[in-house]
Design a protein around this nucleic acid. Structure first.
Lengths: 100, 100
DNA sequence: GCATAATATGCCTTGACAGGAATATGCCGG
DNA sequence: CCGGCATATTCCTGTCAAGGCATATTATGC
C-alpha cells in the first residue's frame, strides 16, 4: 500500500495522531481508539508496510512509534501545488480543522 | 470521496499534474494520458466531486482547471507531522522523486 | 508445561473503486 | 432536423480494503 493510500484512511490517521505523543503499546491504541483489537492490529500492519510506524517488542507487548519519513513524499508532492492555493486562501476561507 | 482518497490514485494525480500548466479540455487530457476516454471522464468526475478541479463548458468541450484549495487540508494535516521528519532527513536520505 | 495476557492472522461478507466496452447526452454545422 | 464530434453515463467484472468474528501465536508467571 502506497503512502498516499495509507493515509487516506481516517482510522490510520487517528493512529498516527496518537503516536505523535510518543511510543505506545498496541493495547493502548486499541483502548484509545475504542475499536476491536483485530481491527487496530490490521491497520497497524498497513502502517508498518507503508513504513509509517516502527515496532519493537517489549516482552508480551508490541510498542509502536511514529516514523514520519514517508510523509516527506507527500510533502514533496504537495510542494508543487502550494503556489496554486496560497494566494487564494484569504478569498476562499478555510474549510479545515482536523487533527486526526 | 475525501480529498485524501482523491489524491491516492496515481491517474488522478497525473491529471492534477497536467492541469498545473493551465486549463485543458477533457479530450486533451485523454490524449495526454493515453487512456480510454470514459476512464478519464470518470476520474474527472471524482476530482470534481472532491473540488480539486473546476469545469466550464466551451461549446461542445469541457474545460477543466485545477483548484488546489482542498489541498490546503492535506497541507495542514501534514504540518503537524513535519517536526517528526525534518530533523531526520539527512540521515535517512530521500527515497523520493516523483512529479505525477 | 499450563493458564493467561497481548497481539497477530485467517476467514467471511460487504462495499467501493479501477478498467473496459457499449451507449447515451449535448452541441455544432449544414 | 440530421450527422458527427466531444464528453458523460451505465453496466459489467475483478480486485482490494474495511469491519467483525474466531482462532492462532508468542511471551510471562506460576
Amino acid at each position: 500500500m502506497s503512502t498516499f493510500a495509507a493515509i487516506s484512511d481516517p482510522t490510520r490517521r487517528e493512529i498516527l495522531a496518537l503516536l505523535r505523543s510518543g511510543e505506545q503499546a498496541a493495547g493502548d491504541l486499541v483502548e484509545a481508539l475504542k475499536r476491536p483489537q483485530p481491527n487496530v492490529s490490521k491497520h497497524l500492519k498497513y502502517l508498518r508496510d507503508a513504513g509509517l510506524v516502527q515496532m519493537r517488542i517489549d516482552g508480551p507487548r508490541r510498542l509502536y512509534r511514529l516514523d514520519a519519513a514517508p510523509l516527506a513524499e507527500i510533502d514533496q508532492w504537495l510542494a508543487s501545488y502550494r503556489a496554486f492555493w496560497s494566494d487564494k486562501l484569504d478569498a476562499l476561507g478555510d474549510h479545515l480543522g482536523r487533527s486526526d
